[in-house]
Design a protein around this nucleic acid. Structure first.
Lengths: 174, 174
DNA sequence: GCCTCAGTTCAATTTTTATTGAAACTTATG
DNA sequence: CATAAGTTTCAATAAAAATTGAACTGAGGC
């Protein structure tokens, strides 16, 4: 587990100093980076999202790269992640090739999506696995307490699978 | 973000082969490891928990180390983590120095604890931060849309802070 | 009071994950 | 069709996180 933030986390890494960002943009990025950390989303993705979130208008690839001092690769991957999770939308002006990005209206929906994509596949996989575990334990002569624990786990798993899809309609087309 | 499990994840790392674990114990460990991954809990911790979860009786330090083929350091830190999050309990027989461990009765409560400890401090910190962001944006002449987004974020943060403590009584003594 | 056992700490190391950047790919457009 | 803008890919590299193990601590027993 990541070391729980000891003292002043003295910036050891050579990060661009983002002179072009206003202080409130920097602070918002810090907020998103922290939240993203909990969800296992990389810093660069959170930074991009924060930038778009606080922007008065949609931004294009190069603006993002310049403002954050980030490599093309990171910007591309970050935008892909955000697109895939329906957290940003492209705003196309006709006659303009370049895509411009802004956050989707509902951050809430995006977050639910994000969590669902992490958790659902795991839950689905584990349904048969937990059954096998229970069978194995029974065969191996596990105590009644252990069998009870394992059954409870299996019931939970099943219930979570039922409940999850109700949180929000799945993304269309997926 | 961790590469999303490409092909057969051919075990590259030299992990102990745990010959002494029954197949259902191994499969349960895999389940817990996967779930732990989502919560950002290290593999070794999940393995220890799984071992205790499927054990017919409480296990001591050396038994855990032997069964999992893990270093003393990892076992010590893993047990500390599990203790700190109230996921295991020590069962003391008198006249015996060595501590023996078993899972706490409620995995649910433990998980809520775990999540709360990750999220609550972040939410608390961000309350003033988000206010500053909003003020800064206002000063910097942000558009009404941006100001609206930021206010919504702030309201959410506040609401989450209200709601969280209701999930379960906080651990006593903390 | 010393010795031993049980466990902890933490610097060094290994493993995993994120980021970079140059080359490759993909269209719109002259 | 050639060009070039816009973007993606991916091998190499950097950074972060987990694990190890040897030195250390401290509670009991003797």
């Amino acid at each position: 587990m990541k070391p729980p933030a000891k003292k002043p986390p003295v910036a050891r890494r050579r990060r661009p100093d983002n002179r072009s960002l206003a202080s409130h943009e920097i602070e918002l990025a810090e907020f998103f980076v922290q939240m993203a950390g909990i969800l296992g989303v990389p810093r660069s993705v959170a930074q991009i999202y924060a930038l778009l979130y606080a922007a008065n208008s949609a931004l294009d690839f190069d603006q993002i790269q310049a403002k954050l001092g980030m490599s093309k690769g990171s910007v591309s991957q970050g935008l892909k992640f955000l697109r895939d999770h329906e957290m940003i939308l492209s705003v196309k002006a006709k006659g303009v090739r370049r895509e411009r990005w802004e956050p989707t209206p509902s951050l809430a929906a995006s977050l639910v999506n994000l969590v669902r994509r992490q958790v659902l596949p795991a839950l689905q996989q584990s349904t048969p696995a937990l059954q096998r575990v229970l069978d194995g334990a029974q065969t191996a002569g596990a105590s009644p307490e252990v069998l009870e624990r394992l059954s409870r786990l299996k019931r939970w798993n099943a219930r979570a699978l039922e409940l999850f899809p109700l949180m929000l309609p799945p993304s269309r087309g997926g």
